[in-house]
Design a protein around this nucleic acid. Structure first.
Lengths: 334, 334
DNA sequence: TCTCAATATGCAACCGGTTGCAAAATATTG
DNA sequence: CAATATTTTGCAACCGGTTGCATATTGAGA
């Protein structure tokens, strides 16, 4: 059925090695044999079997792309950029949907069975230990959107979530709000913890401002909406909220509007991520922009570099975020 | 570095075949050797190399998942379900992002290089010839969300877009609208053509109703919004619109609201897909529900069946759609 | 205990490529 | 043109598994 090296060799009247060499970059072949081989190859419609060659070269050009965020619209953009970035470099994404899985062992085993050259863990909610399991198994790995630590055991590319939390707090303080709040994602997510940390930290200098904190059960519309509904029902809401993520913000927004309150007049909202949808005019969300294109580019680059030099020291690459002013926060008074 | 069959065989004091057989379902091994092998394997942390075994078995358990819709939020749900469905059956999705690619040749070559067992083309905009290129290359293929034809050359799983167009028209007619319109996606997309076809078809019986048609440049928010803005600027808008897709509807919605018009009082909207976001209270979109879970399930099942029986006859599986009444269309008068 | 069938095991070839090495072909130099 | 350096080529072993076949082992029945 499938045409192999041997078929081409036979037809071209050369050895299998000769055929192999014409298809390997920088191998020694005379122009004459190359021509013969290429002719035979196109006639037969041959193209080399990547799987078979990986056996001897030790390179599959397969990259495991592991994620558990299949419900946050941001991640469609993330997958788009990752697949393109990998494809441009001749690499192939093997997609792994973690969903409810939290034990890395299965993923590690599975991806090792397919001899992936490297792994990208794309998640802001998984603990560092997840990516570390790959490193321990000897697989080059990058944790994208992961937690920054001073002595990382694994490459991390993302943002400084603590700084973002602080930035959000400062934006609310600058507007003169007297009561502010953090509405985070799941409490055990590292990103949630860090954003809360930075937020509280900045507010520690302002003891006069009332601060409250609550957590949605997931980074999702429904969770954000439900949590905001609970808040509105229970007590007087804060003047402005820092939501740990845009999709959470949008959920909160819908709850607020349903309650007959206005944004930003009655309640202000600032999100985080600046996903494509956030600038849709229906939302027009003020948010902190996370530079995902840069993060993804750097992640791919870093995993490629680590494949080349496995002993490379674990490295952290953080990208600056900035506030995108839109319509869900009042302008700064002057 | 990596521990192989040979290492385990040596340690267990048996032949390589014995080890191989321990890890192959239904092979003949005595309980005693199996125990020895399993002990040695766990001590060494061995797990079989799927790539290597695929060479002899001819099965990689890799499925090419090909799509060009990385900007429609619906497809995050689609990817979620596909990856889970495949994983549950022990298959691995190799993701291919087509983006601007329209020539199937590259994708076919690439996926053949990786000896994928099968391919799923997930797109409502690609022409049938795209999936057919895989079949011509001898790769089992299913076109999900593809166009239904009476004599298909390739498996198609999806909906009857013509019927959906008709259904939308009937919904608008039932409401007594005197002028209605179709706002489609790209004109060359098969789904757009079919939906328009069905829509016009149903309205042919109602010559008294004014009908107009226009096309957005893509199935995206921006395109839907831009097209609706053009419409509102140019002339008196229709009383109600059938938008060829939910994300288009949401774009149109934002344009209408910005123009100070009310939905559904001034302009009614019915979409298609019922993606998760459509029921968000901010949109509350009346739409035609496409049963994507069923479509994806059937697609995976069909590709698996075709891998087993490659000579299986091309088959079309269509699933019924139904209208989900929400807030963007007035109730039917009675 | 012996015979014969059933089961378990190892050998060796194979899957589709790559690559070190030595021999062959070609190019360069004096 | 011979001698030497350089490039090209094929052989054969190998990557990490699987599998048909012949042999060895085990178990059942007499």
């Amino acid at each position: 059925m499938a045409v192999t090296l041997k078929d081409v060799a036979q037809r071209a009247g050369v050895s299998r090695s000769a055929v192999s060499r014409t298809f390997t970059e920088g191998a020694s072949v005379s122009a004459k044999t190359r021509a013969k081989v290429e002719k035979a190859a196109t006639e037969l419609g041959y193209s080399p079997n990547a799987i078979a060659s990986s056996l001897t070269t030790g390179r599959t050009k397969l990259i495991g792309l592991v994620s558990n965020n299949f419900h946050n619209p941001l991640f469609l953009e993330v997958f788009d950029m990752f697949t393109r970035g990998l494809q441009e470099r001749g690499l192939r994404p093997l997609l792994v949907n973690l969903s409810n899985e939290t034990d890395p062992a299965n993923s590690v085993r599975m991806l090792r069975q397919y001899s992936v050259d490297g792994v990208i863990v794309a998640s802001s909610t998984l603990p560092p230990s997840f990516a570390e399991a790959f490193r321990d198994a000897g697989v080059p790995v990058v944790h994208s959107f992961g937690r920054y630590t001073t002595s990382p055991h694994v490459h991390v590319v993302g943002i400084d979530n603590i700084a973002c939390g602080r930035m959000a707090a400062e934006a609310l303080i600058a507007r003169g709000h007297q009561s502010v709040a953090f509405l985070g994602g799941p409490e055990q997510a590292t990103s949630t913890q860090d954003r809360a940390h930075g937020f509280m930290d900045a507010l520690a200098d302002h003891p006069d401002i009332v601060v409250s904190v609550s957590y949605a059960s997931a980074y999702s519309f429904d969770a954000g909406r439900a949590e905001m509904q609970r808040i509105l029902l229970a007590k007087a809401p804060a003047e402005a909220y820092f939501c740990g993520d845009d999709v959470l913000s949008i959920g909160a927004l819908s709850a607020i509007q349903d309650a007959g309150l206005r944004v930003p007049e009655d309640i202000g909202i600032i999100g985080l991520n600046d996903m494509a949808m956030s600038r849709w005019q229906n939302f027009n969300l003020t948010t902190i922009r996370q530079p995902i294109a840069e993060i993804i580019d750097a992640s791919v680059e870093l995993v490629v570099a680590t494949i080349k030099h496995p002993e490379r020291h674990p490295e952290t690459r953080l990208f600056p975020c900035k506030i995108i002013e839109r319509g869900t926060l009042q302008p700064v008074p002057r």
